[in-house]
Amino acid sequence: MSRPAAAGPQASAGAPVTSVQLHQVSRHYGTGEARVQALADVTVTFPAGTWTAVMGPSGSGKSTLLHCAAGLDRASSGRVVLAGQDITRATDATLTSLRRRTMGFIFQNFNLIGSLTAEQNVALPLKLAGARPSRADVRAALAAVGLADRARHRPRELSGGQQQRVAIARGMVTRPSVLFADEPTGALDTHSARMVLRLLRRMVDESGQTVVMVTHDPVAAANADAVVFLSDGRIVDRLIRPTAAGVAERLTRLEG
């Protein structure tokens, strides 16, 4: 499958358009001897209209990077710019408004509301943003992840993989300019994973959306335009136009 150049769309002045930027971002937890450094002086840009995979050994800071980039966690130092707005010291109200207007997030542990049906879970971001959800849009999002016939099922009536696909439909339904995804295919069978990866690819290629995805799977990462590798909270490598074999080889080096 063809992929756009990793630089993404170009502004009229010729400079790359960027959706997300981290400038010398560090994140630590705790103090004294209990202090843990999750990110250390990370500078990275995710160009608009591209798909970047974030990879690295367990504990390398992948999810922390994703959460800081999305404004779900605060950087201890440095600067985070999301959709052209510096969110480093933004108020919670500003962050909430920006997230609802600009981004979607697919969580590793689904975060579905058990009392709501699949279609109600998918419609929730639209309602929170003050929009009136279109049933057609909600059903289309569920159909896109292969769950058109599960719209009225509650999470307890769905398998783990089906719950993950509901979470993916929820992240996509607002057509966010930036979609952050934490292991979006981790709980899926091979067929479902391929379906989701094709959807993410179309979001980028056809709609110009930006995808930033944490994954441990070289095959999933090979669908992206670029891969950023973390180790001990630092960016240690990058790979443009990745292949599964190339990603696996670099991961082996990091984990060895």
Rank of each mutant, 00 (worst) to 15 (best):
R135E: 14
I168M: 06
D189C: 11
L142M: 02
A144L: 07
M172T: 07
S159H: 00
H191S: 13
L147A: 01
L179E: 15
R150V: 01
P176F: 14
P184V: 05
R156V: 03
R150T: 01
E183V: 05
R165K: 11
A141L: 00
R152A: 04
A148I: 00
Q162I: 06
I168F: 04
R132P: 01
A167I: 09
E183N: 09
G186E: 08
M172R: 13
V138M: 05
G171T: 07
A143Y: 06
G186D: 06
G161H: 15
M172P: 06
M172S: 09
R132V: 03
A187H: 07
P176W: 14
A141T: 01
A129Y: 02
G130S: 02
A193H: 11
V138I: 07
V173S: 10
P155Y: 07
A169D: 11
T190G: 07
G171S: 14
S192R: 01
D182E: 13
T174E: 02
D149W: 00
M172D: 15
G160V: 08
A148Q: 13
G186K: 08
D137F: 00
L179Y: 13
E183T: 05
R152T: 01
L147C: 02
T174K: 14
S159Y: 07
R154H: 14
G161Y: 14
A141Y: 10
T185N: 03
L158F: 04
A143S: 12
Q163I: 10
Q163N: 08
G171V: 09
R132Q: 09
R135S: 15
S192Q: 09
T174F: 12
R165G: 11
S134T: 02
P184G: 00
T190R: 11
V138D: 04
R175M: 08
L158T: 04
T185S: 07
L188S: 13
D182H: 05
S159A: 03
V145Y: 15
R175F: 13
T190I: 01
G161W: 11
H153R: 06
V173G: 09
V138A: 10
D137V: 03
A151N: 10
Q162R: 12
